[in-house]
């Protein structure tokens, strides 16, 4: 069949992911360093990257731990950020081949970048998602490990301005999403909620409360 000739291969997924690799490398290193400054040891940071495999949720949960918030607050913060994966996962549900256990394992390779790359051609393609996701996974876990080991040797990361660099990281990640009036309004509302609650609410709670700004999406 001629249409089969154009079918993507896992190799194509690797190739598509290559130009994006600096992102996960930098993000993974940052998470490793941040985790060690928040008191997580290298094993904890690596286990988190290997199981959660979602940078912003990992940063959010670790921020709450770092600020002395409860486990429930940290879990809720990460859960809210990762809720988008339910939507992404459903959107690619039909492209995963094989048995249920195999789909369970391979679905873990769904991450923002692999999902976006796999849908570039207009329909989602499993080989692209698998190839790109696998490369991102390996890079993510190994750069977390390097970051955690480097971070544990830093005497005073704050003096290097690393705390501001982490904030800048999220600013740069958020920027592409804050397009259009609704996203701008929702982001400003989230910032306002966080600012108002920071002095009065327990650690991590302002962050979770800010999620209420997502409800602006219900407006038509």
């Amino acid at each position: 069949m001629p249409s089969e000739v154009a079918e993507a291969r896992v190799r194509d997924g690797f190739r598509a992911a290559l130009p994006l690799l600096p992102g996960p490398v930098l993000f993974g290193l940052s998470f490793g360093v941040f985790a060690s400054t928040a008191g997580l040891n290298a094993v904890a940071a690596i286990v988190m990257s290997a199981t959660t495999f979602a940078g912003s949720a990992q940063f959010a949960a670790t921020t709450v731990i770092h600020d002395g918030g409860t486990a429930a607050t940290a879990i809720l913060a990460a859960g809210l950020l990762n809720a988008r994966y339910i939507g992404m996962s459903i959107s690619v549900a039909s492209i995963f081949p094989g048995s249920r256990p195999r789909r369970l394992v391979e679905s873990q390779l769904i991450v923002d970048e692999s999902w976006a790359l796999s849908g570039r051609s207009g329909r989602f393609q499993w080989p692209i998602l698998f190839g790109a996701g696998l490369l991102f996974y390996v890079v993510w876990v190994s750069s977390t490990a390097v970051g955690a080991l480097v971070g544990s040797t830093l005497a005073n990361p704050e003096s290097l301005g690393l705390d501001a660099a982490f904030a800048a990281l999220f600013l740069a990640l958020a920027a592409p999403y804050i397009r259009g009036r609704r996203a701008v309004t929702a982001s400003l509302l989230a910032a306002a909620i966080t600012l108002v609650l920071l002095p009065v609410a327990p650690p991590g709670v302002p962050f979770i409360a800010a999620a209420a700004a997502c409800l602006l999406g219900l407006r038509r």
Binding site: T63, F170, L171, A174, I193, G217
Partner: peptide
């Protein structure tokens, strides 16, 4: 529509908290 706002909203809150 709600889920699509989670990214910008939560990242903004994270920036404010970290800053």
């Amino acid at each position: 529509a709600v889920v699509s706002l989670i990214g910008p909203v939560m990242l903004t809150a994270l920036v404010v908290t970290q800053t």
